[in-house]
């Protein structure tokens, strides 16, 4: 089984003209094992999205190593990505930006199917797999709701038969009632085809629903990592404890989380 992603002591710096460089990721390391669902959580600016970009070669490394199934991940050039790296697919936060507005979704799914090394599932089956009516395949992205568009983005990523799926805040732009649903869907489709899943979110309560393991980041470093239930019910790092304590509970009791400022 393939789909192993290793971040080994990685550092990423963004240089800004005329101003000091920003170290977005500062010696972070963790592994997504084959077939595993890993949740990466942290607050804005902790470097979680930079890690996602790193995994698909969208930003250069300043230190450390990223390997995908043993192959080093190198930044994109102007040419096609190495076939090996096409086995890693991404679902972004905003599906309206990641889908082509001027092409029918059937055509976009066909493009993705062409990348599949074996025999890809037919478009109808892909759509049914994410809970959409196959009859809608001749429509354009704008004819769908936000939740449906994200399902299409997931179907497109899965059409390539990936070994690893990365979701970078894939539910952040959806209505609250849809978030848990779409997150669970991502876990289900990934598991059904033996694909590993790296699910990046700021929302620990949703990550808890779907992840086997959780990695908590703060200021470019991994502060805690462990099985989901353990991190949820017995967090070790002071930062994770604070993060968990800050989540408001929908219990109807009117308790505002009490969090000391950092």
């Amino acid at each position: 089984m393939a789909g192993e992603l290793v971040f080994d002591d990685v550092t990423v710096r963004y240089t800004r003209p005329g101003r000091p460089a920003v170290t977005a990721v500062d010696g972070a390391g963790f592994t997504v094992r084959p077939g595993e669902v890993v949740g990466l959580v942290g607050e804005s600016g902790c470097g979680k999205s930079t890690l996602a970009k790193l995994a698909c070669g969208l930003v250069p490394l300043a230190g450390g190593r990223v390997t995908f199934d043993g192959t080093p991940v190198t930044p994109h050039g102007l040419r096609k990505r190495a076939p090996r790296l096409l086995r890693l697919q991404m679902v972004f936060q905003n599906p309206y930006a990641s889908l082509n507005p001027r092409r029918r979704i059937a055509a976009q799914l066909e493009d993705a199917r062409a990348i599949h090394p074996g025999s890809p599932a037919p478009v109808a089956e892909l759509l049914a797999g994410v809970g959409l009516d196959p009859a809608l395949s001749s429509r354009y992205p704008h004819q769908f709701s936000g939740g449906q568009r994200q399902r299409i983005a997931i179907a497109r990523a899965m059409a390539t038969g990936p070994d690893l799926l990365i979701g970078d805040e894939p539910i952040a732009s959806l209505d609250a009632s849809l978030q848990a649903q779409v997150a669970t869907l991502m876990r289900d489709v990934a598991l059904a085809s033996d694909t590993s899943l790296l699910f990046i979110s700021h929302d620990l309560s949703v990550v808890r629903l779907i992840a086997d393991r959780v990695v908590v980041m703060r200021a470019g470093r991994v502060v805690e990592e462990g099985p989901t239930e353990q991190v949820w019910s017995a967090p070790q790092a002071a930062y994770t404890q604070r993060l968990l304590a800050a989540i408001p509970r929908a219990d109807g009791l009117g308790t505002i989380p009490d969090v000391a400022p950092a």
């Binding site: 609250a176 009632s177 848990a180 876990r187 309560s205 949703v206 808890r208 629903l209 086997d212 949820w232």
Partner: peptide
């Protein structure tokens, strides 16, 4: 639909 109301994996 709230995450609190569902069991974990």
């Amino acid at each position: 639909a709230l995450p609190d109301h569902r069991p974990g994996p």
